[in-house]
C-alpha cells in the first residue's frame, strides 16, 4: 500500500504544479514586460527581467497619477465588498431561516432579475442617477451592490448545508434578539461563504470599467481601469512597457491581498467545521 501511494502522490503534485504554471504564465509575462522597453517586448518573450522599470514608471506618471486612481479604486472596492458581504448575509439569512408570505416568489423574482442581460440597462441607469443627482460620485458604483443576487444565492445555498435550526432555537431560548442571533451565531457560520464571495466581489469591482467610465467625469475621481483606458488613448500606448507596468500596478496588489485573504478563509473554514 505504502509503495503504491507514493507515486500517486507525486503524480498528483506534478499535475497540480503543471496547472499552476499554466495559470500563472501570463502573469509572469506581464510582470517581466513591465520592466522592459517597447523594442524588447516586440522582439519576443524572455524570462529575464529588463532594465527599463524606472523609465516606464516615469513615462506613465507623466500622463496619469496612477496612485490616485489606486486610492479611488480601493475606496470603491472596499466599500462594495463590505456592503455586499454584510447585506447579502443578512438577506440570505432572512430567506433561509424565516418563513414568510411571498418568500419563494421574492426569491424567484431575485433570481429572474439576474437573468436579464445588463448591456442595455446602461442608459436607463445613467438617467436614473441623473435624476437622483448622483452622477460623478462613487455612490452609483457602491450602493447598488447592497443588492447582489449572486452573493445572496450563494450564501443561501451554503446555509442550506451548514445552518441547523437547533442552534437558533437554543439561542432564542437564551432570550437573544433576532439581530443578535444573526450577528453572533449565524454570521460566523456564513463567514467562509461570505469571504469567498468577497474575493469575487472585490475583484469584480476592482476591474469594473464601463460603469465608472460612464458615471464619473472628474479626472481626480477616476478609478484604475478608467485611467488605464486614458493611457490607452494617449501616447503611452506606444510605450508597451509602461502599459504593462500600469496593468501590473493595478493587478499585483490585489493578487497579494488575495493571497492573504485566502489564508484568512482557511482559518475561518477551520473555525466553521469545528462548530459544525
Amino acid at each position: 500500500m505504502q509503495n503504491k501511494r507514493r507515486p500517486t502522490k507525486t503524480i498528483i503534485y506534478l499535475l497540480l504544479i503543471l496547472l499552476a504554471i499554466i495559470s500563472s504564465v501570463p502573469f509572469y509575462m506581464m510582470i517581466i514586460n513591465a520592466t522592459r522597453d517597447t523594442k524588447d517586448i516586440i522582439t519576443g518573450f524572455t524570462f529575464v527581467p529588463g532594465s527599463s522599470l524606472i523609465d516606464n514608471y516615469n513615462t506613465m506618471m507623466g500622463y496619469v497619477n496612477i496612485w490616485n486612481g489606486f486610492k479611488n479604486s480601493l475606496i470603491v472596492a472596499v466599500s462594495v465588498t463590505v456592503l455586499s458581504g454584510y447585506f447579502s448575509a443578512l438577506t440570505a439569512f432572512g430567506f433561509a431561516v424565516y418563513n414568510f408570505k411571498g418568500k419563494n416568489q421574492l426569491f424567484l423574482f431575485m433570481l429572474l432579475m439576474m437573468m436579464v442581460p445588463g448591456q442595455l440597462g446602461l442608459i436607463g441607469f445613467y438617467e436614473l442617477n441623473k435624476t437622483l443627482g448622483l452622477l460623478d460620485t462613487f455612490i452609483p458604483l457602491i450602493v447598488p451592490t447592497i443588492a447582489s443576487p449572486f452573493v445572496v444565492f450563494f450564501v443561501r445555498q451554503y446555509l442550506a448545508t451548514t445552518l441547523h435550526s437547533s442552534l437558533l432555537e437554543a439561542a432564542r431560548m437564551d432570550g437573544a434578539s433576532e439581530m443578535k442571533i444573526f450577528h453572533t451565531i449565524a454570521f460566523p457560520i456564513m463567514m467562509p461563504a461570505v469571504a469567498t464571495m468577497s474575493i469575487f466581489t472585490f475583484i469584480g469591482s476592482w476591474n469594473n470599467y464601463i460603469l465608472p467610465l460612464v458615471i464619473l467625469f472628474s479626472p481626480e475621481k477616476y478609478t484604475l481601469p478608467v485611467l488605464m483606458g486614458f493611457l490607452k488613448g494617449s501616447q503611452v500606448a506606444q510605450n508597451l512597457g509602461s502599459m504593462y507596468l500600469g496593468i501590473a500596478i493595478s493587478v499585483v496588489p490585489i493578487m497579494i491581498a488575495f493571497l492573504f485573504f485566502s489564508k484568512y478563509i482557511i482559518t475561518s473554514i477551520g473555525a466553521g467545521s469545528v462548530k459544525g
Binding site: G94, N99, F100, K103, L106, G124, F125, E127, I146, A147
Partner: peptide, 29 residues
C-alpha cells in the same frame, strides 16, 4: 413552520436598493 414576519426586516434593505437601481433600467429595456 409557522409564518414569521421578521424575515421581511432582513430582506428589506436588499429589495429597497434592488428596486431603486435595477428595476427602472430593466423595465425601460
Amino acid at each position: 413552520k409557522k409564518l414569521d414576519y421578521k424575515g421581511y426586516y432582513f430582506i428589506a434593505p436588499f429589495f429597497a436598493i434592488f428596486l431603486t437601481f435595477n428595476l427602472y433600467p430593466v423595465l425601460l429595456t
